[in-house]
Simulated assay, not measured.
Amino acid sequence: MKRRTLLGVAVALGGSLWREAVAASPGRGAYGELSEPDALGIRLPEGFTARLIGQSKVDVAGTGHAWHGGPDGGACFAHGDGWIYVSNAELEAGRGGVGAVRFGADGTILDAYPILSGTERNCAGGATPWRTWLSCEETPTGFVYETDPYGGVAARRRPAMGRFRHEAAAADPERYVVYLTEDEPDGCLYRFVPESWGDLGSGRLQVLAGPDDGLLWTDVPEPSGGTAPTRHQVPEARHFDGGEGCHYAAGVCYFTTKGDDRVWAYDAVANSLRVLYGGDGPLSGVDNLTGTPGGDLYVAEDGGDMEICVISADGAVAPFLRLTGQDESELCGVAFNPAGDRLYFSSQRGIANDLYDGRTYEVTGPFRA
């Protein structure tokens, strides 16, 4: 087990206070030691259990819908007294898309269905306050698609949000913008400013630019990237090594970069940028992330120890779970149900290290608020 550290100065996840880093004991943290692997090969803290809810090319239990290959980014949405979990399919051209599973109040699976199909390499994305899912194509000229988790409205392409190697999205309902990450070695952090909040059909794409003491958001001249990639159109743009997951909470946009294994915090209130986690620490290939109302961040690993780790509001970093027997896969799609007592995640390539052996899991237990 590697040592879990937090380097430098860390922002409290509520966005109002910076605290000195605190190192967590190996294998410990908010939930204590991890158990031995369960029947699914998952090591969990005491009091937590897991179940498999989806396996690629196999019908979701009680439905006639086969779960998609390459499950990646995901999110949950309230639905009546239950909820819906959506999951991207990071597959080759024409095979990508998004699948959804609907749950009853007690967690029973009620239905499963597609909400987007025929796209390419749908990697991560983000939920909007108006309860749609933004599914992002990770290709050099990729689009963002706005989808309906409830299956009632056809997916809509949102070209104004730029054409680049999209990764994740996070809506900021206080500044009325959507932050976007880019999975390139010299990728950028963007924000989309819609003409009307709630309508992503038109607006301005901006890129984070300038030095640390003078950050500014600059319009991207040609979001379509027709003559030059969006990341090269603004000379002063800030560049990040492989943008991955993105999560917004209480004035702060958190995002990960896999090339240098960092978790960043852009404080939109103070217009400042800091490294929340990074350096020689163990989060190898940091990927998707999500957060809780209490200020914990859950960060999935693409590789490494195949863990989902918690960065606590007090600065401690420790594993929450470890998946065994699937070391060549990656963990992704981390999302909590509305009540916060169930966590969903996927192993993209499963036991066979094949996109068509992907597996999606649910973890239930005494999560702290």
Rank of each mutant, 00 (worst) to 15 (best):
G104Q: 05
P173C: 03
A369V: 13
G214I: 07
V60T: 10
A168G: 09
G107I: 11
A209M: 09
R274V: 14
G325L: 03
G294C: 06
K258P: 02
T119D: 07
G107S: 08
P129W: 02
G73M: 04
A24P: 05
E195A: 10
Q326G: 08
G32D: 09
Q206K: 05
F240Y: 12
P140R: 08
M161I: 08
D199T: 09
Y85L: 09
R262G: 07
A171V: 14
V9N: 12
C76F: 05
E36K: 14
Y150L: 10
D327E: 14
Q326H: 11
R4G: 04
G187A: 10
G99K: 02
L13M: 10
D213C: 04
E307G: 09
Y176H: 15
G279E: 06
Y145R: 03
G126R: 02
R204S: 09
G294E: 02
Y150V: 09
I308D: 00
E307D: 03
G151W: 00
K2A: 12
E307I: 05
A12W: 11
A89W: 07
Y176T: 14
A313T: 12
E244L: 12
L44Q: 06
V58K: 14
G80C: 03
L216C: 13
L52T: 07
R158V: 04
R163M: 10
F336P: 14
E184R: 13
Y248D: 05
Y31C: 06
A169L: 07
I42G: 06
P293L: 04
D172V: 08
G291A: 12
R238C: 14
C246P: 11
A100H: 00
D183M: 09
D260M: 01
L116E: 00
L17Q: 14
D72E: 15
A112P: 09
Y344S: 07
P366D: 07
Y298R: 13
A12H: 14
G295P: 13
G243I: 04
A66M: 07
D267L: 10
G350H: 03
K2T: 14
R368N: 05
D357I: 10
L52A: 11
A168K: 02
C123Y: 06
S312F: 00
G278I: 05
S135I: 02
G278Q: 08
S196F: 10
S16L: 11
R368K: 13
L276W: 04
S135D: 01
W83N: 02
D241R: 11
S312A: 15
R4E: 11
A318S: 15
D267F: 08
A209E: 03
F336E: 02
A12F: 04
T364R: 15
W217N: 04
L208E: 00
V22T: 15
Y85G: 05
E362C: 13
I115A: 00
Y356C: 09
F192P: 06
H247D: 07
R349I: 00
K57P: 00
Y298H: 12
A93G: 06
F320M: 08
G259V: 03
V275K: 08
L273A: 03
R368V: 12
T139V: 15
G96I: 12
E195L: 09
K258G: 04
F192W: 02
T360I: 08
T132R: 15
V263K: 03
A12G: 13
G70V: 07
G198W: 04
I109S: 02
L91Q: 14
G281I: 06
A75P: 00
